[in-house]
Design a protein around this nucleic acid. Sequence first.
RNA 1: GGGGCGGUGGCGAAAUGGUAGACGCAGCGGACUUAAAAUCCGCCGGGGGUGACCCCGUGUGGGUUCGAAUCCCACCCGCCCUACCA
Length: 936
Amino acid sequence: MTQPEVRESEAVVEQTPDEYQPELIEPAWREKWEESGLYRQEIERDRPKHYALTMLPYPSGDLHIGHWYAMTPSDARARYMRMKGYNVLFPMGFDAFGLPAENAAISRGIHPKKWTYENIARMRTQMARMGAMFDWEREAVSSDPQYYHWTQWFFKKLLEQGLAYRALASVDFCPQCNTTLAREQVWGEDRHCERCGTPVIKKEMEQWFFKTTEYAEELLDFEGLDWPERVKTMQRNWIGRSTGAEVLFRTEAGHEIPVFTTRPDTLWGATFMVLAPEHPLVDEIATPEQQAAVDAYQLQAERMSEIDREAADRPKTGVFTGAYAINPVNQERIPIWIADYVLMAYGHGAIMAVPAHDERDFEFALKFGLSILPVIERPDGLTKSYAMKGTMKEGFAAALDAEGIAYVEEGGSTYVTLAPERVADYVRVAQAHLQPGSWTEVVGTGWTFVFPDEWLVLDSLKNERRILARCRELEPAVRDYQTVMEMLWGLDFYRDALYHSDYGTMIFSGPFSGTPGDVAKERVTAWLAEQGTGRRAVNYRLRDWLISRQRYWGAPIPIIYCDVHGAVPVPNEDLPVTLPEDVEFMPTGESPLKFHAGFREAPCPICGRPSVRETDTMDTFMCSSWYQYRYLSPGYEEGPFAPEEGDYWLPVDQYTGGIEHATMHLIYTRFFTKAMRDMGLVEFDEPMLALYNQGMVLGEDNEKMSKSRGNVVAPDELVDQYGTDTVRLYLMFFARWDQGGPWNYAGIKGPRRFLDDVWSVATADYQPADVDEAASRDLRRKTHQTIRKVGEDLESFSFNTAVAALMELRNAIMDAQREQNISQVVWEEAVDDLLLLLAPFAPYITEELWQRRGHPYSIHTQPWPDWDEEVAREESITLIVQVNGKVRAKVDVPAGISNEEAERIALAEENVQRWLDGKKVRKVIVVPDRLVNIVV
RNA sequence: GGGGCGGUGGCGAAAUGGUAGACGCAGCGGACUUAAAAUCCGCCGGGGGUGACCCCGUGUGGGUUCGAAUCCCACCCGCCCUACCA
């Protein structure tokens, strides 16, 4: 394969000293590389391409060690691929829009643009020191108008495709300051405004969304992607596909309330309904008596953010609406409540509550005294395992009637109990057998009944009607349903008997009683469809992507609102809609664009009537969803990327970055690519074919690095002290790349000594004193084994073991140098190969030494050395001899000996014989070229 | 609560069914030096033995196997992500 840029060797640094001094050679080579265009990456149709991409940074200020940790191993692998003959694209850019720039503007009075571009300039020089093969001519910066021009263009394309829409969504709003607030501006438990301290409220505003849910099903398909299982699992969970049924409930007044359920087989156990507090029907159905309570609850729910609402261990709260619904399967009349554990954003914002088989509903029912009705038999028969058989008090056992129910009069009260097999049936039994009016509510298994004026909790499990609580005695403080239920809740027994979420045979479910659990869901769903009260349904946890941000420093949404024509997209010839720079940053939390008349006021593109622009900007995740395409041709003016570049380079072959982007960014960019495919822009389905996640470098204290902890490692200082190559090498050596770990300053000396040794052997004038053929063969073997090992390790991102293998080769070469018994040819091959193998890891020193050894520029365009299987093969191996699995001898034997021969040698060993003494050999296991295990 | 990752010398780590601790750091002994640093040579999991060797050892307890850090079951601990998704 042809390699570009092979030139005559020429001295880059005049008079370079004989010792390794990275501070002299590194800047010199950097200049030479740039001037010779070593890292220009252009289409070469006769070579296979490899698009290596590493996640682009946010220009936060300084390049920290985490950037080095993410980028330099990715760079080493890209360099390796280049030496393997691929035409490698390895670009870099900046994800430059975002909140920190705006915060800097507000707190320090620096314009976001100035802050951002100064940071980019600084980080670009810091990145240059890394010696990475970035092609800066392909740099893309998302806040450049020539970049966000196309971000806006994509917005319009998505709109045309029907994948963008406008809808009401709630934002945090401060009623005092009369402005929307970002999440970061809402403080404290009570969620008050950062500035004025007023509690914030949720306010509905028109915002733009992308229909990510349109691709939910396709996003679950990872076919052909070489991605970590972990990321795929996280995405699957994020998308959260559930199958079940949509069931139509009606209120007594006739309002339709559709609900989604994954458990249509539990429909007969629905004892109440719950609507999300913001459900549109709530105001219509609430009865006048309940209206005040409902209003109060809604107001309180509105003030809570979703995060607070979703804190799962919060106790359940809710309010009765006063309305009732009819269960379509059995016409039961069930109360309708509102509670914030039901989320408006999922399903239909309403649920049928089945407390016996849903833990949240169970908790809610206990708290508010709602009926609990098991309709699924426990698959494990646990209900029955609480049998009172033989322990039931005589009087009860004797009184059991044919249906397994007993009534005992005692001391003016009626005690009722059920045979254990009737436990699940208690409500029916009670309704059928107790006099109407003689009980108010049945709340337990067969062991718990509630009578008028006296709440009794009996424990018949222990063969006694022990009264656990008699509420009348506890009056007045605890005489309420909740107290009793909380007490019951503490008794695991009741919970076990009443609640489980397993599938099982249906009971007390009208015509479906007896339906086995494995087909129950399906049969009920089919029946619902027949009845016209429901249908099969799939629901996703994934929500549409809200892209509107009430912010300045982002790409403006290219929309003009006209009184007549509504939301009109800005015509292509007027793109980009540029951000005005003369804006004022007042700490209002409101986008300054809103107060910029020159920006805000614009004629309608259709009729020319004075109109207003959209002043919201786009979520920065939108900019980073398509950056891999912009790198191909960052200056291209006819579209987001030049088609001929796309044809050659796309898609990305290897993506590397942190696990923190497993869901958001990586789902968004997949969504984008699928939408682009449907727009006819690309012909593939997935943006990145392979993905690998690196770990994180922690501070020396094993904590996440942060300025406040004072444990931040500054790469620039390390480079000043040890040189770039040493820092790169150490980052790849000190931990497994996918795991990361705490930084350790002392350890960096190892890689530096290694490079000093490489320098010394590569500049040594080696003369063999006395050539030993066997020793020469040994070094040559080690060299070829190392070529194999380093290649394999780079393929699999095992940078640490690759560096270890290079150190081993260094050790072998230095031993040989001491002995001076290696042939000249083998020595030169070993040293040259060491440099070639090391080149992806330490680009500067290898370039320098390659030149000093008289080879043509550049080492980085040399082909990766080949290894010879014959040469790499071991001549002799250490045969391990075990007796009953314990090592008893080690023997050097020629490689490839027969099993019989190995067994013979093993048995002949003196120590082995001692262990075999007098015992009978039962079995001998021989693993070729490895070990012999003798079983006695 | 759910999902994931991990637990191996003084430390970072190798080894994914076959010699546990490759490679490196730190440490110890020696050489060089007036001395220190650097460099070079040697040792470096614990215990026993003059020695050949022996015993113990990969978070804990079981299991599978001729053989387990590695596979299976149960548990303990740490970290990360996620969280009322009906």
